[in-house]
């Protein structure tokens, strides 16, 4: 019976082995591979073209999903809509003094929040040491007195912080890649642990998926734990952003009244806040009967097919 372990082991490492991307696959002339590395968890690729530098976690093809990009000529300007969708939450809470970010990537969100709130304490939890190193080397990510990283599984970190009674005004979950989703970071029990870290004016933002049955299951899970939340979707992106607050959510009119005042602060990120009040909706557009995800039931990666 012990022999039977072997197929299991090979399953476990198959993804890692497949992840070897020959540099020769850089078929698009203008795209150059700056750095390539196989870490414990994934294949990390840093690519550049004429205008931007990107970090990718790829499995088989170079044109896989970009995790994080930035323009050479303007480090502030946000390349992807998802980061702007995250920033739309400023209309709900705009003075966090402590921020916890799960998932570093190229450090786009860290850079953005550091720029917005230079005095805020920012803690980044990243499971993959190699990602931290690549972000430091290529994306000017820096640890300072206020900004520190913890290389640890997000669930473990959050559980321990809960035991210590630490609070974070703002928690951002940005730990999901397209290929594999850590299922223990999606369950109701996990969200309860996250909720314990939020003070009474605290806010949670999650960057997640907008397709498949997982969209409904995840939405129902957040709804069970946090009640009503803002569900932010935009055409042209597979991301959706969940904004959940410990305070009652502002209504549309309040958001519209608040938005223009933020434009001065977010213009440098290439963003127009007045586009967002209409995107912050609470009305469910998913199957409310899809089963809530729990530690007992979390076939996340199967539901995502």
């Amino acid at each position: 019976m012990g022999i039977a372990m072997r197929p299991f082991l090979s399953c476990l490492f198959a993804a890692a082995l497949l992840a070897l991307v020959p540099a020769a696959q850089a078929q698009r002339g203008e795209l150059r591979i700056v750095h390539q590395e196989r870490s414990l968890y994934r294949n990390i690729l840093v690519t550049e073209d004429e205008e931007r530098l990107c970090m990718r976690f790829t499995v088989t093809e170079l044109n896989g999903l970009n995790q994080s990009c930035r323009f050479f000529d303007d480090h502030d300007k946000l390349v992807f809509p998802y980061a702007k969708m995250v920033l739309s939450s400023l209309m709900i809470q705009d003075n966090p003094s402590s921020i916890l970010i799960l998932g570093l990537g190229g450090g786009t969100l860290v850079h953005t929040y550091k720029t917005l709130f230079p005095n805020a304490k920012i803690t980044i939890v990243e499971i993959d040491e190699a990602v931290v190193d690549v972000a430091k080397k290529y994306f000017d990510f820096e640890e300072t007195d206020l900004i520190r990283t913890e290389v640890v599984d997000g669930r473990v970190y959050i559980k321990r912080e809960g035991l210590k009674g630490t609070k974070y005004d703002l928690i951002i979950l940005d730990a999901f890649t397209g290929e594999y989703i850590p299922e223990h970071l999606m369950t109701a029990e996990f969200l309860e642990e996250v909720k314990k870290l939020l003070p009474e004016n605290g806010m949670l933002i999650a960057n997640t998926f907008s397709t498949s049955r997982l969209y409904a299951a995840e939405s129902n899970t957040y709804r069970q734990v946090f009640g009503e939340f803002f569900n932010v979707r935009m055409p042209g992106t597979g991301n959706r952003i969940i904004i959940a607050s410990m305070q009652p959510l502002p209504d549309r009119a309040t958001l519209e009244a608040r938005a223009p005042a933020f434009n001065e602060r977010v213009a440098r990120f290439g963003m127009d806040m007045t586009e967002f009040p209409q995107l912050l909706v609470t009305k469910p557009d998913w199957n409310l009967r899809e089963r809530v995800l729990t530690d007992e039931y979390a076939p996340v990666n199967l539901l995502n097919n």
Partner: peptide, 10 residues
């Protein structure tokens, strides 16, 4: 699956 909530899936 059982261990992940306490020890992660590293």
């Amino acid at each position: 699956r059982i261990l992940a909530p306490y020890f992660g899936s590293s």
